[in-house]
């Protein structure tokens, strides 16, 4: 649902999302990288477990919560992609220790 403008030049970065390989661009936020790859739903909500996706992309809505490198509830729009990053979507409430 999002395409990259042809003249946007950046190095590529390799990461995984729920175990699947994904190529992103250096400088992308994790949220942008997922949207660029067509991954919209990042979690189900803590209260009612309904699907949620990024809304504001500027760090104020707290909808884009994901697990990054084993730590849950991170705001994907505020974290830049890095090579080898492991991203996992979340279901419901966070687990202690994850």
């Amino acid at each position: 649902m999002f395409r990259r403008l042809p003249d946007a030049k950046r190095d590529t970065v390799s990461l995984t999302v729920d175990g699947n390989a994904l190529t992103a661009r250096a400088g992308d936020s994790v949220a942008a990288a997922l949207l660029a790859a067509g991954v919209l739903v990042c979690r189900t909500s803590a209260v009612s477990e309904t699907p949620r996706a990024p809304y504001c992309l500027m760090g104020v809505c707290f909808e884009c919560l994901l697990a990054i490198d084993g730590r849950q509830n991170r705001q994907a729009c505020l974290v830049q992609v890095a090579d080898g990053m492991r991203i996992e979507t979340q279901a419901g409430k966070r687990e202690v220790g994850r």
Partner: peptide, 20 residues
């Protein structure tokens, strides 16, 4: 999912060169 702010679309454009 699929509802965002116009500002969010603008951020994707500015920071990542992404357009919907």
């Amino acid at each position: 999912p699929g509802v965002m702010t116009a500002g969010a679309a603008q951020i994707l454009l500015k920071s990542s060169g992404l357009v919907a």
